[in-house]
Simulated assay, not measured.
Amino acid sequence: MVIKMEHGDLEINLKVLKKLAYIATRESYGPVNIASESFFGKLFGEKEEERIKVEELDNGKIVVDLYLEVEYGVKVSEVAKNIIENVSHVLKTIGGCEDVEVNVHVIGIR
């Protein structure tokens, strides 16, 4: 992702945005685990941060996909809404992204 600045361009790697999304998700209420969507990811235990998908579309839009396990007894819709707001806010304010789409996929309850 490239941000036009007064004295030149600033290029932000998608790994940085992934780290920001990870931190914002962990600071949110409700998620217990960032789960892997793939069988091999579950089998070989990839790091939580690596399980977040961040991609930049041709029009500059940033799309974040989170696969989560949530705590038993929480209202899933409220947890998802909270995470979407937190991740979007962090990516817009700290990451400098203008157009962000966050998709929360709840794949389990613990």
Results as ranks from 00 to 15, higher is better:
50 E>R: 11
61 K>S: 01
82 N>F: 04
94 I>V: 15
20 L>Y: 13
100 V>M: 04
11 E>L: 11
50 E>T: 00
109 I>D: 05
107 I>T: 13
11 E>I: 10
25 T>A: 03
85 E>P: 03
57 L>C: 00
95 G>T: 11
55 E>M: 06
78 E>W: 01
70 V>E: 00
66 L>A: 05
87 V>Y: 04
71 E>P: 04
17 L>E: 07
100 V>G: 04
46 E>N: 12
3 I>M: 13
46 E>G: 14
104 V>A: 12
79 V>P: 08
95 G>W: 01
34 I>Q: 10
69 E>V: 13
68 L>T: 02
48 E>M: 12
96 G>L: 08
7 H>L: 14
60 G>K: 10
8 G>N: 11
1 M>F: 10
78 E>C: 00
56 E>V: 02
58 D>K: 15
62 I>C: 01
106 V>K: 06
24 A>I: 09
59 N>K: 05
107 I>N: 12
52 I>M: 02
62 I>V: 05
26 R>L: 04
68 L>D: 07
62 I>N: 07
33 N>A: 00
88 S>H: 03
56 E>C: 03
109 I>R: 01
90 V>S: 07
103 N>E: 10
18 K>N: 13
61 K>Y: 05
14 L>E: 11
50 E>N: 14
49 E>V: 09
1 M>Y: 08
67 Y>T: 14
87 V>S: 08
94 I>W: 08
102 V>W: 09
41 G>W: 01
10 L>V: 15
92 K>G: 02
88 S>R: 09
100 V>H: 06
14 L>H: 09
66 L>M: 05
89 H>Q: 12
17 L>Y: 15
6 E>K: 12
61 K>Q: 05
75 K>D: 10
16 V>M: 04
94 I>N: 02
104 V>E: 11
88 S>D: 09
46 E>H: 09
105 H>R: 10
73 G>R: 05
59 N>G: 06
9 D>V: 15
45 G>R: 15
70 V>R: 05
69 E>Y: 04
76 V>F: 01
27 E>Q: 13
38 S>L: 08
33 N>I: 09
74 V>P: 03
102 V>C: 02
102 V>A: 04
57 L>M: 11
71 E>C: 00
106 V>D: 02
67 Y>D: 10
38 S>W: 11
15 K>S: 15
34 I>L: 14
90 V>K: 08
91 L>Y: 02
35 A>H: 08
59 N>F: 06
82 N>Y: 03
20 L>W: 03
5 M>W: 00
33 N>T: 14
66 L>Q: 07
38 S>A: 08
96 G>M: 10
28 S>F: 02
70 V>L: 13
40 F>G: 03
46 E>V: 11
106 V>L: 01
109 I>P: 02
83 I>G: 01
15 K>Y: 11
74 V>T: 14
91 L>N: 08
87 V>N: 08
79 V>E: 02
33 N>H: 15
6 E>M: 09
96 G>P: 10
47 K>I: 00
